[in-house]
Amino acid sequence: MTVALARISAEPIEADEVEHAVLTAADGALVTFRGVVRNADEGRGVTALDYSAHPDAERFLRESCARIAEETGLTVAALHRVGALRIGDVALVAAVAAPHRAEAFAACARLVDDIKATVPIWKRQHYTEGVSDWVGL
């Protein structure tokens, strides 16, 4: 059980980096999740998202990864992007490697849920009608 990588990035993030960080010769399964900016939310058209993070967000991201690594005994990693993102941009990459697929799928789902619940990151959503608002209020 290891945290291979946990970073908040202002630059575009690549799944390759996260996958390479977790994968070892003992793994037969590699599950990667990409959270992508989509063009609608709750029935309203979305044009862009601005992500911002608390200065300690990277510590919380690392703690989240450590929690899931500890809980599952697997190697996990995650990158979260901040800044101005457009439709189709990747906001989060989370990956888990395991000997078999079932545990890798389950751990990756847990990891993403935990990151969303515990890492202090915020987003402002810009809508097609020209207004914008914070998500989750």
Binding site: G35, Y51, A53, H54, H80, A91, L92, V112, I115, K116, A117, T118, V119, P120, I121, W122, K123, W134, V135, G136, L137
Partner: peptide, 10 residues
């Protein structure tokens, strides 16, 4: 003390 709005990462 920091005031943290609801988290919206991912």
């Amino acid at each position: 003390v920091d005031v943290l709005p609801p988290f919206a990462g991912g």
